[in-house]
């Protein structure tokens, strides 16, 4: 079967539709992401504390 390859080439760039609304959307997504990262950091620090406690109890 003959394959047809369609290649669209353009140098024209487009901006987001409704830029003001998009800034709000980006802000909301960024805040959600930062909250998730804060939770990951919280777990990371808690695990570090627990690991230190375990190591101390083993060395004693």
């Amino acid at each position: 079967m003959k394959k047809i390859s369609l290649q669209i080439q353009t140098n024209q760039l487009t901006e987001p539709i409704n830029n003001d609304k998009m800034i709000v959307v980006v802000g909301v997504i960024a805040i959600i992401f930062v909250v998730v990262v804060a939770y990951l950091i919280h777990i990371d620090l808690r695990l570090k504390k627990q690991e230190k406690k375990n190591n101390d109890s083993k060395s004693n």
Partner: peptide, 24 residues
């Protein structure tokens, strides 16, 4: 974290190629 935040901001607010069907 820095790279993902950058990609969210630049990916949603930056300019992209103007292509039929795909568009935004």
């Amino acid at each position: 974290v820095v790279l993902i935040l950058y990609s969210i901001a630049a990916g949603l607010l930056g300019n992209v190629p103007d292509l039929p069907i795909l568009e935004q």
